[in-house]
Nucleic acid binder design. Structure first.
Lengths: 127, 127
DNA sequence: GCTTGCCTTGACGTCGGTGGGAAGGTCTAG
DNA sequence: CTAGACCTTCCCACCGACGTCAAGGCAAGC
């Protein structure tokens, strides 16, 4: 499988695949003319990478999952390192949610105050 | 007031103040030697900018609030444009929260599955 | 041989809010 | 006179996951 074929099969770009390779996520052999040649199993790897990226994982977070797949496990989630990353990510997302809720509440109260002061101060003024 | 004084009073850097100016948020006169000279009212403006930046607003989002302050309102929130931005931001944050909650729940179920399959498949294997 | 379409590496642009530093002018105190 | 503490403009670096050329090699059909 060449890089263009893998890219299309995985629904991404050749640029992204080369990027993953330079960051140690993808592996490719080389044909006589220097083209990258991919094993069929790499399609799974690319799908795992993109799924995790889509959730908000960074490249380094994804490495344990890829390693887990390469170790022969049907899912990248089951290895201890992957589980550790999952736990950490859940905590991060929880913290992010807390921050955003706090911001939202602050914005809401600010909006309420703004509307109230408009009603009281603008009823007879140009506002 | 010179830029260093304003920076210290507002708890930020001169670098940031120049950045705000190039993006149309801050106004400064110039003294004979070319130094920026700030009106006392600019301190309020800088505080408004930094408060909104801290909440996650972008430079463009902040412009209506600054304009509102300059129009003489005691708060930057009360003008129609500011209120519109507030509403939009609240919606954005709400959407962000929804996405993160979804991600968190997906991660949680993935974690549960991973732990379960480890328990069943690793009890007698090297895992 | 020529075109078309793959592939290669390499390097720069993106977005936003700065940090850092260069190279230089200015003001004040000792 | 000089030191140092301001100020000025300008430009590079950063983070992350790529997009987008550029310049060129290789394969296949006509």
């Amino acid at each position: 499988m060449l890089i263009g074929e893998l890219a299309e099969a995985a629904g991404t770009s050749t640029r992204a695949l080369r990027y993953y390779e330079t960051h140690g996520l993808l592996r490719a052999g080389r044909s006589a003319n220097g083209y990258r040649v991919y094993d069929d199993a790499e399609l799974r790897v690319v799908r795992e990478i993109r799924a995790l990226l889509g959730i908000g994982f960074g490249i380094d977070d994804i490495k344990p999952f890829v390693a887990c797949l390469r170790a022969g496990h049907p899912s990248g989630d089951v290895c201890p390192d992957s589980v550790a990353v999952l736990r950490r990510k859940i905590a991060e997302v929880d913290a992010g949610i807390d921050r955003m809720v706090e911001v939202r509440d602050r914005l809401r109260s600010q909006l309420t105050i703004a509307i109230e002061s408009r009603e009281t101060s603008c009823s007879s003024k140009t506002c």
